[in-house]
Nucleic acid binder design. Structure first.
Length: 222
DNA sequence: GGCCAGGTCAAAG
DNA sequence: CTTTGACATGGC
């Protein structure tokens, strides 16, 4: 089944031609930025809607921290409108860009490669609109730091399998990191596969795992 | 038309 | 510390 094997995450956006399934090679400064932008725009929003927003940013030649930073709020809002919460997200995106330009003029690639994971995570968390999941997504997919990303699918699937009940974000993360090989490649694949599984078999209103590839492993009851 | 989507923050209780 | 509401579009 196509759900298994390398997913090649993070998904594509305006740098589309440079990505392909299973590709984990070095990524460019602009690709790193695109992943950050996508991580912010996809908060509580389907990726389909984010893709439209990323395409709009690209079409308007507004795909760098510099250009987004000087883009008027109204215009930026229009560009990311399809991703929902657009006023809020435009502000968050701009705030992130402003921070980059002020505090890290060396650029994302250098900043990310020089910063230890927890330092980077803490710095990202201090910004408005970047919470634990977004910070970990950026740290893992844009910076290659080994920290497990916890999202709603990961929790839902784990809960339906009976792995855990209610845990704090940090406890969920600790649970996964204690039970997996501690490297970015593993965390990358696991999170990508969990999201894919979640989309297909573990929706909120579809508690049954009909046709679920987990098969017998799934202990989900009627 | 209702429910959902790869969250986060601020204001209450 | 836990709960609640606001933020908003587009797909099915």
């Amino acid at each position: 089944m196509a759900a298994f094997g390398p997913q090649g995450w993070w998904p594509v956006g305006w740098n589309k031609p440079l990505y392909r399934p299973g590709f984990y090679g070095p990524i460019s400064e602009n690709e790193i930025f695109e992943i950050c932008a996508g991580a912010i725009l996809t908060q509580n929003t389907s990726w389909k809607n984010v893709e439209k927003a990323l395409a709009a940013l690209h079409a308007a030649d507004t795909t760098s921290p510099e250009k987004i930073n000087v883009c008027p709020a109204g215009k930026l809002g229009r560009l990311v409108r399809s991703s929902g919460y657009y006023r809020q997200k435009a502000g968050r995106l701009k705030g992130f860009c402003c921070y980059i330009l002020r505090k890290h003029p060396e650029g994302l690639k250098k900043w990310f490669s020089a910063a230890p994971r927890q330092t980077l995570r803490g710095e990202l968390l201090s910004l408005k609109g970047i919470g634990p999941e977004t910070a970990d997504s950026i740290a893992l997919y844009a910076a290659g730091k080994a920290g497990f990303v916890i999202d709603s699918y990961t929790k839902r699937i784990s809960q339906r399998l009976g792995f855990a009940g209610e845990l704090s974000y940090e406890d969920w993360q600790a649970l996964f990191e204690a039970n997996l090989p501690p490297n970015a490649g593993t965390y990358n694949e696991y999170h990508a596969l969990l999201v894919k599984l979640g989309k297909e078999f573990c929706k909120k209103r579809k508690p049954l795992c009909n046709g679920c590839p987990l098969g017998k492993m799934c202990n989900n009851k009627k």
